[in-house]
Amino acid sequence: MRFIPLLAVAASLAITPVAGHATSLHTHWEQYKAGRAFRHLSADGQKALGDILKAHDLLSAGNTDAAIPALYDANKRLVAAGNASKKFNAAESALQPAPQHAPAAAHVAGAAPDVWIPVGGEFIASETLAPEKKAAIATANKQLQSGDTQQAAQSMQIVGEDVDFIVALAPLAQTQGALNRATVFTEGRQTKDALDALDQALNGLVFVSQDFVETSIPSTKSAPKAK
């Protein structure tokens, strides 16, 4: 899988600026290139992805009943994301996958148009970064998985601008289909089949550069806030 390994990043670290630095923090973050990409992320899409990951964890741990509400929430949030403006239409073959998360060599990109939702992102740490900066990036990636862009922005303040940001796109129809199958299997206590369906949803994500997303989705004034 291309997204699940991110679950192994370091535990979250809260980095909260003092009130007197709020204005300078905001100005600095707006200038940072990943801040631009945040404005294109779907708030409902981010939450849906978090619900999918949560359901996957619960099913893997054998907590089938507890996974059902997360699956329901993911379904509702995907519907909301599909009705919002943070999306675009394109064939998968027209996307430009980021080399850090390239599709499997045997994967054949579809040529039929689909609706794509920007459901998350990932900061890419270079090998030359100091350990504390790599830790901050790991924390920010974990916060992004939870849809908390504000905390991710705060965590990234110590890193600076020398880092890449890639965006995870979910094909709406394919993801909804996999999620519906996972829900039916979970309700039927068919855990393995449910996990396979969620794996299909996660493996369907395509990671692209922030520049690609910026040319595909019109700009908005502010980053989505976590609910």
Results as ranks from 00 to 15, higher is better:
residue 105 A to K: 14
residue 58 L to M: 08
residue 189 R to F: 12
residue 51 D to F: 03
residue 126 S to N: 12
residue 138 A to F: 03
residue 50 G to K: 06
residue 148 D to A: 10
residue 145 Q to S: 12
residue 21 H to K: 09
residue 159 V to K: 03
residue 208 V to D: 04
residue 153 A to Q: 09
residue 52 I to T: 02
residue 160 G to W: 09
residue 107 H to M: 09
residue 189 R to K: 15
residue 52 I to S: 02
residue 208 V to F: 02
residue 132 E to M: 10
residue 22 A to I: 01
residue 47 K to P: 00
residue 38 F to M: 06
residue 74 A to P: 07
residue 207 F to S: 08
residue 190 Q to N: 14
residue 136 A to F: 06
residue 81 A to G: 04
residue 126 S to G: 14
residue 223 A to I: 06
residue 98 A to I: 02
residue 193 D to Y: 05
residue 60 S to H: 07
residue 193 D to W: 01
residue 206 V to F: 07
residue 158 I to F: 05
residue 54 K to M: 11
residue 17 P to V: 06
residue 161 E to C: 03
residue 92 E to I: 02
residue 111 A to R: 11
residue 222 S to T: 13
residue 112 A to C: 02
residue 164 D to Q: 12
residue 204 G to T: 04
residue 194 A to S: 11
residue 136 A to I: 04
residue 217 I to V: 15
residue 201 A to V: 05
residue 173 A to I: 00
residue 201 A to F: 06
residue 118 P to N: 07
residue 125 A to F: 08
residue 133 K to W: 04
residue 111 A to Q: 13
residue 54 K to C: 08
residue 213 V to Q: 05
residue 5 P to T: 04
residue 174 Q to I: 04
residue 20 G to A: 15
residue 222 S to M: 12
residue 154 Q to C: 00
residue 70 A to V: 01
residue 84 A to Y: 07
residue 67 A to R: 01
residue 89 N to S: 13
residue 46 Q to G: 15
residue 223 A to T: 06
residue 133 K to T: 05
residue 55 A to M: 06
residue 33 K to Y: 04
residue 70 A to C: 06
residue 190 Q to I: 01
residue 111 A to K: 13
residue 39 R to C: 13
residue 70 A to E: 09
residue 218 P to E: 06
residue 113 P to L: 04
residue 21 H to W: 09
residue 20 G to Y: 12
residue 114 D to Y: 04
residue 225 K to V: 07
residue 2 R to N: 12
residue 81 A to F: 05
residue 118 P to I: 05
residue 47 K to T: 13
residue 179 L to W: 02
residue 40 H to F: 08
residue 124 I to W: 03
residue 77 R to K: 11
residue 115 V to R: 11
residue 172 L to C: 02
residue 52 I to V: 15
residue 84 A to C: 07
residue 36 R to Q: 15
residue 141 N to V: 05
residue 38 F to T: 04
residue 225 K to E: 10
residue 218 P to I: 03
residue 224 P to M: 01
residue 165 F to P: 06
